[in-house]
Nucleic acid binder design. Sequence first.
DNA 1: TTCGTGATAGAG
DNA 2: TCTATCACGAAG
Length: 195
Amino acid sequence: MSAVADRPFLDRSFFASDPVRCAEALVGCTLVWGACAGIVVETEAYAAEGDAACHTFRRPSARQFVADHPAGAAYVYFNYGMHWLANVLVKGEAEGFVLLRAVQPVAGLAWMRRRRGPRDVAELCSGPGRLARAFGIDGRHHGVDLCAGGRRGFLARVRTPEIVRGPRVGISLAQEKPWRFAVGGNPHVSRPRPG
DNA sequence: TTCGTGATAGAG
DNA sequence: TCTATCACGAAG
C-alpha cells in the first residue's frame, strides 16, 4: 500500500468541472477503493445535457440522481443482467458522468484475483465490468461520496500520461462524440484499443 | 459471432 | 403485463 500512503484524495472541486474535461483529467490519477488501487488508464464522458448515450437522456432515475447528489458521488448501475459499472458524478459548468473503463492495478492484486480468478494482470481491470468486479464495486456503493476521505477516492496524477482520444465504446447513440480517453499504448486499456 | 442475464421505463 | 433496450464479457 505504499503507492497509496499519505496522499489526500482529490477534492470535490476536481469534479466541479464538466464531464469531458474531467474524464480526461482523471486519466493518470489513482483510484483507491479499500484495499485495492489502480491507475486510471481509460475513461469515458457522458453529458447530462445533449448526449443521447447518457442515462439522463432516458432515465428519470438518473436525472434524479444528479439532482440529489454532490459532485464526486459514485453512480453505480447494473447492466446486461450481469455487470456493474462505476461512474463518478460531475457537476460544475456542465453536469454528467465519467465512466471508469480500465485501471492498471497497483494494490490489492490478491483481492482482485480472488474476485476475478487467476488472470494475467492486464486482464484484471481492462474493461468497466471487469474493473468493478475486481474492485468489489456493486450496488451497495451507488451514491457513495468519493470526496469524503476514508476508504474510497482518487489520488492526483504523479505524472502526466500521454492521452489518446477516440469514440466511446459499446453505445448505439451519439457515437460521433470522441469522449473516450486512454493512456496511449497502455496494455491495461480495454478493447478495441483507441488510436 | 453469439448468447447469457436482469433492471428500467414506456407502451398497451 | 409485455417488450425493447442496454456504457459487457466469456466462450466458441
